[in-house]
């Protein structure tokens, strides 16, 4: 008589001991809880203004606006990256050829960020100037273009004006908490009007009229960066992002 014995299966995992099961379950639950506590990840576009042949404003001494905005871009990346922000910069170095504002807007509109920050600096005024587009905001939902309608290039920001104003307000509150003077205003500053996302221009001025050189102070810059990071975190908490890229609208080059 032939007796067939089943082959021993080497692929079958060994059953875990009850204490190990408990530990694994605890770790799994802790990881889940940690993930639930984390704020939702949003993508922020940073646009250090000017660059290349366009030096921007001549700040104190030999400091140029294009260099200061690039430095702020690096500081902001370092402050925001650990806080679950996805970051895109329009430039990470000084380009050798002109880098037009339309090119920056194209990068922003392709990547569908949750917020766009255009970084500027000036030697006039004091504190921080937060500027939103001067385009009129849609009065009612009916004024909004249909989801598949082309958006005029020069008015791409129009539908995002309410969100941009909220973003500017949150950043302004955070800067005031950091005891940095802040002014909220509106203007027609390229490429703000062409951006299809909540967008503000942040212009950094000296801390006070009597200290024009303070704009180059690393401690002052770091205070600004930390306040902006706090403002963005607050904005993210109060305005949960929709799924990035959900809007099928893409700004087109339609002329007015």
């Amino acid at each position: 008589m032939i007796t067939v014995t089943p082959l021993k299966s080497y692929n079958q995992p060994k059953a875990l001991n009850p204490p190990l099961k408990l530990i694994a379950a605890t770790i799994f639950l802790a990881a889940l809880a940690l993930k639930a506590q984390q704020p939702p990840r949003i993508v922020v576009l940073l646009d250090p203004a000017h660059g290349g042949p366009d030096a921007g404003a001549h700040l104190s001494g030999t400091l140029l606006e294009k260099d200061l905005t690039l430095s702020l871009n690096s500081r902001l990346r370092a402050a925001l990256a650990p806080n679950n922000f996805g970051l895109i910069s329009t430039r990470d170095s000084d380009p050798t050829v002109p880098f037009l504002t339309d090119q920056r807007a194209e990068i922003a509109n392709r990547t569908h960020p949750a917020a766009c920050l255009t970084l500027h600096a000036t030697s006039s005024g004091r504190g921080i100037h937060i500027v939103t587009s001067a385009l009129p905001a849609p009065r009612e939902a009916a004024d909004l273009p249909s989801p598949h309608a082309p958006i005029p290039w020069d008015a791409a920001q129009s539908a995002s004006i309410p969100q941009s104003l909220r973003l500017a307000n949150e950043l302004g509150v955070a800067l005031l908490h950091a005891r940095i003077p802040v002014l909220l205003t509106q203007g027609s500053i390229p490429p703000l009007d062409n951006l299809n996302c909540p967008a503000v221009a942040i212009e950094i001025a000296p801390l006070s009229f009597s200290k024009p050189a303070s704009i180059n102070d690393a401690a002052y810059q770091q205070r600004i960066v930390q306040a902006i990071a706090a403002g963005l975190s607050s904005w993210r908490a109060h305005n949960p992002p929709v799924v990035p890229g959900a809007s099928p609208n893409t700004a087109t080059g339609a002329a007015h």
């Binding site: 806080n83 307000n169 955070a174 005891r179 205003t185 706090a230 607050s234």
Partner: peptide, 27 residues
Amino acid sequence: TSHPRPPQLPPDTPDATTDTSTDATHP
């Protein structure tokens, strides 16, 4: 003619910058 208003705290929160998800510190 315009006189920009200072930033306003969002109505739903007593303090807009108390988000604990950032390590930013205020002086």
